[in-house]
């Protein structure tokens, strides 16, 4: 098991955003986490990546407890993520966005930097090369010198994924990767996600769009911070609770 979440609970003031939530992800899996808006999906992401600490519960990654660790430590353990509203390093070029995220791998000492040694330059060249590889995977290598803030929305979303990949993650958390994309961009993104999975990266997808279900092997559905269903996409689609959460009540996905 790569990621195991047990009894996760998070209160904001008196309001439970997530309550007694259990989930696990196996190595190499593509898991979907779906639910209506405000169900607590992004909160689970933020808890897993250490943006805030849980009120109660356990999160273990690769057998290690990661509750209480800081965001950057969790990233170093091998969890990469994207963001729903997709903030970027807007004043950096596309390539810089990725290479900045690449900083974990070859490390240069302070003296290397001061004197601009061969070692430092070699490391930087290696990083640029690797970053370009990642950009090719998500199809952004043609725009590598554009400023990130000038990219169209779909490209920015892809750049978010590229940046998360640069951490060399074992587990990739994608927060609504296709929201706001046009149909051809969606197709391209889905292909890219499949390709990443084939490269051995475990992926957890958050969506409130039921269409993305077919991509996943297993789906977990949450509503009001609690798990209401789990199983294959087909099972989940026919589950009464899920249908009620999505179509009953006041809102429609």
């Amino acid at each position: 098991m790569l990621l195991e979440i047990n009894g996760l609970t998070k209160y904001f003031g008196g309001l439970a955003a997530v309550r007694d939530f259990d989930m696990h992800i196996d190595e190499g899996e593509l898991l979907g986490l779906i639910g209506p808006n405000g169900a607590g999906k992004t909160t689970i992401f933020n808890l897993t990546t250490g943006i805030y600490g849980p009120t109660k519960g356990k999160i273990a990654f690769d057998g290690k407890d990661i509750v209480g660790k800081k965001s950057h430590e969790i990233a170093r353990l091998g969890i990469g993520r994207t963001f729903q509203l997709n903030p970027l390093f807007g004043n950096f070029t596309v390539l810089q966005n990725v290479s900045t995220s690449f900083h974990l791998h070859p490390r240069s000492s302070l003296l290397d930097i001061y004197f601009n040694t061969a070692n430092y330059r070699r490391n930087e060249a290696y990083i640029s090369e690797q970053s370009l590889e990642i950009l090719k995977l998500v199809g952004l290598d043609k725009v590598k010198d554009e400023l990130a803030k000038n990219l169209p929305h779909g490209y920015q979303k892809m750049l978010g994924i590229a940046r998360a990949l640069a951490v060399k993650p074992k587990l990739l958390l994608l927060d609504e990767p296709i929201a706001g994309m046009n149909p051809s961009e969606i197709d391209f993104t889905l292909t890219a996600i499949r390709k990443m999975q084939q490269q051995g990266i475990t992926i957890l997808l958050v969506e409130h769009n039921m269409k993305i279900l077919d991509l996943c092997e297993r789906v977990v559905v949450i509503d009001f911070g609690q798990k209401i269903a789990e199983g294959s996409p087909k099972d989940v689609r026919e589950n009464k609770e899920v249908i009620r959460a999505y179509f009953g009540g006041e809102r429609v996905a």
Binding site: T49, G50, I51, K70, S71, H72, A75, R76, G80, R81, F83, P87, L88, F89, G90, N91, F92, Q96, S99, T100, S101, H103, L104, S108, L110, I113, Y120, E124, R163, A164, A166, V167
Partner: peptide, 23 residues
């Protein structure tokens, strides 16, 4: 250098910077 890039990254978005492992 890389240090300066990391500093500028933090200035632009500290949440994203920590999500890619920048302390």
């Amino acid at each position: 250098s890389r240090i300066g890039t990391n500093l500028k990254a933090i200035a632009q978005s500290h949440v994203v910077a920590s999500s890619v492992g920048i302390n």
